[in-house]
Write a protein that binds this DNA or RNA. Structure first.
Length: 625
DNA sequence: TTAGGGTTAG
């Protein structure tokens, strides 16, 4: 219904006053074409019980039959017929009959032409709305763009002393998630306990999801513990909570315990979440294990699972497997193609990514926002400045997609890497989207590569303005100064950082072997095989020196003597991880190291020499958990 | 006195 409901009703009411008697029905379920007034009368509908003394005749049908007729009329009502029925309900006072008004309200709320304003108007005409009336409207509001109204209705009904049912409580909780109000949700939690719904596992599952969406992991876990019969969905919500709230490693443990303890069999959704966790961790072995499980259970047909497998393999640096999954898909949608394009781009196959983009369009798949993010990042990885500009233009002109912060971020990266720092700065200044810390940091990284001191300082000011400056940003600026030989500035900044208590995040490298994740920090001595690792590292250093490796000591640690620098560099976390990799894998293996910080130039060289001397392929992934 | 609920892809 597109017209204003009140006006429509009034107009229809006046025209219907005279015409309702000649209104005939033609509905989907009712085959009758009798005039509506012959199907039911005012008198009979005020009675809700059939009068047994009255013999039904063809002229005067049984009241119950008449009731059923009206209900089926309402249920199958079209936009116009509902307006007429509404008028009839008012005229005959049947609107105050709880059964009819409830049927009518549900129809208004959930029919294909539903109109919430009209539903609300109708609701206001009911003298004494029941809990069911409230529930119906609450449900409608919870899936609308005014979810707050669901909460207000819930409050109103409880204040009137009406008891909500578990289903409407669940809908209201979902509404609170939508309008992001923890406080409102907490009130509902209290009420749920008061209403005695604490054993309703579906409702508690919604409650877990509610807490999870507000990063209240502990609360979500408490609710999980309270669920007496935990089914797969409850486990899935718990897993999704861990995934959302940065406890990614525990997701793998939860998956194993579901599988091994056999209490609840992981389903396709579980696998989807675990595959995402593997992608975040770069845990290739575990990801492959889950992939195997997916095939074993026959979940492999699911499009969304295959799409996340493509993303997982790509993010773990295993492009062949990503492509294998992609190729084996009988049907591919825009998400499959975008995942493959991004995968190619992030693994350094920028030109192939662009070819895939062209192939996708030949197949008739229309690209979306995220496809272009992949394409633009492909350009930035290959240094294709002109092509990137062209794609950005094509995106808005041909596909009507306005560039978002990610697209601009790619452009800044592209221009920045190419050394066009001023142009990159101009993009941020004039992009018409509020710059975030990430985009400034991208530019700061480019300043570091090209040693651009003044712009670097300006970028830090912008980050400070956003109150988003992190220790890592100052470290980048330190590196910019030192690469330019500005030692006084270095000392000054160091002093400033010390005074402000700015602590740098320790670099942490991660390596996954046989499904077990091993972490290393600089000079780490916590690993059970630390002695072997340090011995191996000494040996590797000697071997690499013979092969021509020289420690790169120019910019990272300027204020130490050359020998001290070389020593400090030798125990960087990535070197410890690599040494462990050499120790624990046979030649020919790919050693995949994940880092929370960018890898330094020296470790990069170290890895390059190591691959040749020890016959291992080394790959690094930069990942923040 | 109706039907209705929870997790999920790039």
């Amino acid at each position: 219904m597109t017209q204003a409901p009140a006006a429509v009703i009034n107009k229809n009411l006046s025209s219907l006053k005279n015409s309702i008697s000649c209104f005939t029905t033609r509905t989907r379920t009712s085959t009758t074409s009798k005039p509506i007034h012959k199907l039911f009368t005012h008198k009979t509908f005020q009675e809700t019980r059939p009068n047994n003394n009255q013999q039904p005749t063809s002229k005067n049908p049984h009241p119950r039959t008449q009731q059923q007729n009206l209900i089926s009329l309402i249920k199958s009502g079209t936009q116009n017929s509902l307006l007429q029925i509404h008028a009839h309900l008012i005229r005959t006072s049947l609107l105050q009959n709880p059964t009819f008004s409830l049927h009518f309200l549900s129809c208004l709320c959930f029919s294909p032409f539903r109109d919430l304003r009209y539903s609300r108007h109708f609701f206001s005409q009911i003298d004494k709305p029941s809990a069911s009336h409230y529930s119906t409207l609450i449900r409608a509001y919870s899936s609308s763009n005014s979810p707050k109204d669901a909460f207000f209705l819930y409050k109103e009904m409880t204040q009137k002393g009406l008891k909500p049912d578990p289903v409407s409580s669940s809908f209201v909780l979902k509404s609170c998630m939508k309008f992001s109000s923890l406080v409102c949700g907490l009130q509902i939690h209290g009420r749920i306990l008061g209403d005695g719904f604490q054993s309703d596992s579906l409702l508690l599952t919604t409650l877990m999801d509610f807490y999870s969406s507000f990063a209240s992991r502990d609360e979500a876990c408490k609710v999980f513990d309270e669920i007496s019969k935990k089914d797969t969905v409850a486990w899935n919500v718990l897993i999704s909570c861990y995934l959302r709230n940065g406890r990614t490693r525990d997701v793998l443990i939860l998956f194993d315990s579901m599988k091994n303890e056999g209490a609840c069999k992981p389903d396709d959704v579980t696998c989807l979440l675990v595959v995402q966790a593997c992608a975040n961790l770069g845990a290739l072995d575990f990801g492959e294990k889950v992939h195997g499980y997916i095939e074993e259970c026959g979940y492999g047909v699911s499009l969304n699972l295959r799409n996340s497998l493509i993303a997982m393999y790509s993010r773990c640096g295993c492009l062949e497997k990503a492509y294998g999954v992609f190729k084996g898909m009988p049907e591919k949608n825009v998400i499959s193609w975008s995942a493959m394009i991004s995968g190619l781009a992030m693994n350094g196959y920028g030109r192939d990514a662009i070819l895939a983009f062209e192939e996708m369009q030949r197949m008739g798949i229309v690209p979306d926002e995220q496809t272009f993010t992949g394409v633009l990042s492909a350009c930035s990885h290959c240094g294709l400045v002109d092509e990137g500009m062209e794609f950005l233009h094509q995106m808005s002109k041909e596909f009507g997609i306005e560039p978002n912060i990610h697209h601009y971020g790619c452009m800044v990266d592209l221009l920045g890497r190419a050394g066009l720092l001023d142009q990159a700065y101009q993009v941020i200044i004039s992009m018409g989207v509020k710059p975030d810390a990430t985009i400034w940091r991208t530019l700061l990284g480019a300043c570091r590569i090209h040693g651009h001191v003044t712009l670097g300082e300006r970028v830090i000011e912008h980050l400070i303005e956003l109150k988003a400056q992190e220790a890592g940003d100052y470290v980048l600026l330190l590196n910019i100064y030192s690469s330019d030989g500005k030692w006084e500035k270095v000392t000054e900044l160091r002093k400033f950082m010390k005074e402000k208590g700015i602590q740098t995040t320790p670099g942490c490298s991660t390596i996954e072997l046989k499904g077990v994740v091993h972490n290393f920090i600089v000079d780490d001595i916590s690993h059970p095989r630390k002695h072997e690792i340090y011995d191996k590292l000494d040996e590797i250093n000697k071997q690499l020196k013979i092969a021509g490796y020289v420690a790169e000591i120019t910019s990272e640690l300027h204020d130490l003597g050359a020998e001290e620098k070389a020593h400090a560099l030798s125990y960087h976390s990535e070197k410890l991880a690599l040494a462990f990799g050499v120790l624990a894998t046979p030649p020919g293996t790919t050693i995949r190291v994940t880092k929370n910080l960018r890898i330094c130039v020296d470790c990069h060289n170290f890895a390059k020499f190591l691959s040749g001397v020890y016959n291992r392929k080394c790959s690094f992934e930069f990942r923040v958990e």
